[in-house]
Design a protein around this nucleic acid. Structure first.
Lengths: 228, 228
DNA sequence: AGCTGTGAACCGTTTCACAGCC
DNA sequence: GGCTGTGAAACGGTTCACAGCT
């Protein structure tokens, strides 16, 4: 057979796909019908060639001389990302972060519906937060099976993250959005995306510190230019 | 002069730096004194060579035959990231997400201290959330100047994100952690890190969908192997 | 023997440039 | 004229392999 196992799409491409989607939805809201690769790239600080190459991984969506039709392209990207349907999602851990995520409207807007919350705190179990019922972790498998949930948002304390993650996998979860600042160790078949908020601030700190250094150096070299 | 303007560290390297730091802090807590590049890499699913090359951008931190001393390396990475000091931070937007972030303990642990919150809701202004005073957006410049704040966490509604971001820049902010799902348009001197939660779920959706496709294909090729 | 630091080879992504189409 | 889609070239990051240190 001539089958290539070359199914590997660069991670950077998939990230940009989401960004394109975000911009396209913006364009759609403002009534824009079509968009060129260059203009779409401009809004994100990348080149038109990059945009076109990214789409080329998945097919031909554009019209020479015209550009891309916003609505059509939006649908294609959703299909590629797998968000052209509604994903039921579970949220584990109803602490500060968990509760905020339960109230976050942005998930539903992109097709993710949080249908069940879980916590170990028996005071919370049985109640509802933001209209979402809170279950005991003991009922994980039962609830997830019944509601056909395969994606989970993990917002538990760092120390229990690995344990709970393993329970999720046993309960049939195949994708985890992990907010705990640890590297989860799970079977390869499980997809993991980590969001470490402190880490993001560290990246900011580095950028800022670096810019400061660059500016200092620029000043020094200016000075030596003025008085060599 | 022999000055290279080649100050550019790959973004991926800086991200891994934060991950190394996270693992090292874990090792330190468990009493580990030294660590080899291979073992450190293993915990993150990358090669030892990668680890060593990453550090090589910044200097020589290891000891041949021994590895790296966890505590020493931790300090070096903090110095590089600029988190070997305490950063005062402001948080803008005390909605669901903002309030959760005010209560997030992970920031302080890595050296980020949220000293002031801001909101437009006059009911909140004057109160405190998680012990942090809520100010009016009108007092932005005054408060930021007084508290010497240069970093901000932006957790306002999407529609006002760009406006508020511009106000932040005018008030002296040089780094923004942006939770609104939009591309901020700001002067180059301002560092921006975006966290788009729905986008992260989309990445998860893609991984999961892709895995499903791969498995289906594997099944098909198995079947044709069995009955060719 | 064990492990780092690093030049060199390798590989994948980005940019370029242009043929082809509207 | 404007824009896409795409080979080819250029670039940059990752992996390899080994000299050198402990």
């Amino acid at each position: 057979v001539n089958r290539k196992d070359d199914n590997q799409i660069p991670k950077a491409v998939v990230t940009r796909l989401s960004l394109y989607l975000r911009e396209l939805q913006q364009f759609l809201r403002s009534g824009q019908e079509t968009i060129s690769s260059n203009k779409l790239g401009r809004t994100l600080g990348i080149t038109g060639a990059q945009v076109r190459k990214d789409f080329a991984y998945f097919g031909q969506f554009g019209f020479p001389g015209i550009g891309y039709r916003c609505e059509h392209l939006t649908n294609e990207i959703k299909r590629i990302l797998g968000t052209n349907r509604i994903w039921p999602v579970a949220l584990i851990g109803c602490g500060n972060m968990g509760r905020a995520l339960l109230g976050y409207k942005g998930f539903a807007k992109q097709g993710f519906q949080v249908l069940a919350a879980f916590d170990t705190n028996s005071d919370l179990v049985g109640s509802g937060i933001e209209g979402i019922p809170v279950n005991s972790l003991d009922d994980l498998t039962a609830v997830l099976t019944m509601k056909k949930i395969q994606l989970a948002i993990l917002a538990v304390p760092t120390d229990s993250a690995q344990d709970v993650a393993e329970k999720l996998v046993k309960a049939g979860v195949i994708g985890i959005l992990n907010f705990a600042p640890v590297t989860l160790n799970l079977p390869n078949r499980v997809a993991i995306v980590g969001v470490d908020l402190a880490l993001e601030l560290e990246q900011l700190s580095f950028s800022v510190a670096k810019k400061a250094v660059n500016e200092r150096e620029r000043n020094l070299s200016n000075r030596s230019k003025n008085a060599p």
